[in-house]
Nucleic acid binder design. Structure first.
Lengths: 332, 332
DNA sequence: TCTTTACATGAAAACGATTACATTAAAATA
DNA sequence: TATTTTAATGTAATCGTTTTCATGTAAAGA
């Protein structure tokens, strides 16, 4: 039995307007009235109906989190970070994925046009034209989390895929003194994948290494894809000494391939990954990879968005690039 | 620029009532009008404001998912399952955790009293008195996902922890012919932990094995706790031949302990877990554990809840127990 | 042809909050 | 003391949708 503002007003002997003002800390209401209202409100357990409030103010303190798929560690960490910040600011988190069945655009439209959410965090591997168009005529504050900074009409956060991949490749070449490095990239319609591959290629070039075309394979970011690509690489006449997988999932595929072909890591060949997912630390030997601070990324996105929703942020859009961190394991 | 029902009504030359009826498939509106309205609605890209609708109907197609903490695979799989079903039924998923800072009860109250959500999925390791009281005077449809069926005034789904643990212990005794089995339980204020321990103990008893008190340790469901407990067990004068960890995270701790003490799994000692988390399949050797269909559990919970919210479910509350499945690995 | 019934649509209230504007009472000024 | 200013509160409109009740028109029955 939830109580409404009218009933509370009656109990307090004041009008609903005064109640509303008292609860929203309006300076025009006296200390005494405010105290009386607050006391009665807490006694009767009154909580303003958020639906009604959002409806009339045209503002919603619900954040819509749009992701390609609600699955895997990456998404969990993002949700975790977003939810944490939302909670601290009395905001709510609503999740939505495109479920492989609809486009990201549809998911966004749904949120934008229905008045439920007051802001959007959009996580996407790449911004296509449809989404770009939507964002342009979008009235809702939005923060984009992406593999690359490729849209600047709203706040954005991206992972420094390029420098991460570059530094890891450079580490293999100059610290580990290994020059025969293969790369299994992610799908090349994915910006994370593209930037990581670019980092790898440029590091090779800068160190005067010509790319062996057979050692550059396009994978799909899955364990199975990584395994297949690894087997292909390891059966070549000229075998690479290290396989740099575009993400940890594919790196795990390398481990499986090693077992399958009865090869030892790192003695027979080395493996490197990208992401530093939870499972990586339990691989034997521990995977050498790049840590991506995903949880912090989610927190940052939510923080920026909430400021924007509160209009406490200045007009210019923020574009943040978060660095990755090398995690040396025993796999190289 | 979202369009409202009034503007749409004007464009169509009918009243807002007719629009509403046409869009909600009311039988009293003629085919022709309905067609006209639908055509115009899709042309103008009209989508009813869900806030306004929920506000007036006092029904919300938003599901509140309350969990102790939004972290780890378990929660991700639940969210994944819930979101999937929500999407298919045009429902929305709102997540909320107690963030270690507030009680589950507060999270529920927040959802119940603010009118945002129309139903609740409550995931909790144990229902305390406060929550029990809340559920009793709760008007919102609720589905409880718990480690044990311990509240029957609403729909509930629980994992068959007891039989899972029993069957795994029995498997170790009668198939693997090992009788020296230790158990690292989860925290004993957690129903999952309690039921799993009970399954282990009863299986021992039924096979005529007396429990060695030193081999029964209360852990905390974390990797680190599992490691510490394992080290303790492995340093005993009389060492167990198999350590049955209350969950996979602690089982991973056993692997770490093995490396630390320079012992080999399964030759020096065996390990078993519970949950079949993602990382378990990549442990070397693969962990013997019990698969818990968490994703399906989330889907089931959402399905029941939505039926309840639509009032298409009959009065009696459902109580479902989902079985676990033995996953034999190489760790025993 | 006139009355009754059924059917399609419209007018208007309702939901619970916020807020612009009006009102009253008290304080400040002349 | 009379008038103006200010401060606190109340009145009522508003948001976008659904829904009850009223209304008008066409079909059915007498």
């Amino acid at each position: 039995m939830t109580i409404t503002i009218k009933e509370l007003a009656q109990k307090c002997g004041v009008s609903t307007a005064t109640i509303s003002r008292a609860l929203n800390d309006d300076p025009s209401v006296t200390k005494d009235t405010k105290a009386k209202v607050l006391a009665m409100a807490s006694q009767l357990n009154y909580k303003p109906n958020l639906l009604a409030r959002s409806f009339v103010t045209k503002k919603s303190n619900i954040i819509g989190l749009v992701m390609p798929d609600i699955y895997g560690e990456f998404f969990m960490e993002i949700i975790h970070g977003v939810d944490e910040v939302c909670y601290l600011n009395k905001y709510y988190t609503m999740v939505s994925s495109s479920h492989g069945k609809r486009s990201t655009a549809e998911a966004i439209i749904d949120f934008m046009s229905r008045g439920i959410v007051g802001g959007i965090i959009l996580m996407t591997p790449a911004i296509d034209d449809e989404v770009r168009k939507l964002l342009r005529l979008n009235q809702l504050p939005t923060v984009v989390i992406s593999g690359k900074r490729d849209y600047d009409k709203c706040d954005s956060i991206s992972i420094d895929n390029y420098n991460g991949a570059y530094s890891l490749t450079d580490y293999i070449i100059n610290i580990k003194k290994i020059r025969k490095i293969a790369h299994i990239s992610g799908p090349l319609n994915n910006n994370d994948a593209i930037q990581r591959q670019r980092g790898y290629l440029n590091a090779l070039e800068d160190n005067g290494i010509t790319v062996n075309k057979n050692w550059l394979i396009e994978g799909d970011f899955t364990t199975f894809g990584g395994q297949a690509a690894s087997v292909k690489l390891l059966k070549l006449k000229e075998r690479p000494e290290v396989i740099f997988a575009g993400n940890d999932m594919m790196a795990i595929g390398c481990y499986i391939a090693a077992r399958q072909l009865n090869l030892k890591i790192p003695t027979d060949f080395g493996v490197a990954g990208f992401d530093d997912i939870f499972a990586s630390q339990f691989l034997n030997p521990r995977l050498t990879t790049l840590h991506v601070p995903i949880y912090e990324l989610g927190k940052e996105a939510a923080t920026i968005l909430i400021k924007r929703m509160n209009k406490t942020e200045k007009k210019e859009f923020k574009h943040i690039t978060v660095p990755t961190e090398l995690v040396p394991g025993g796999s190289i």
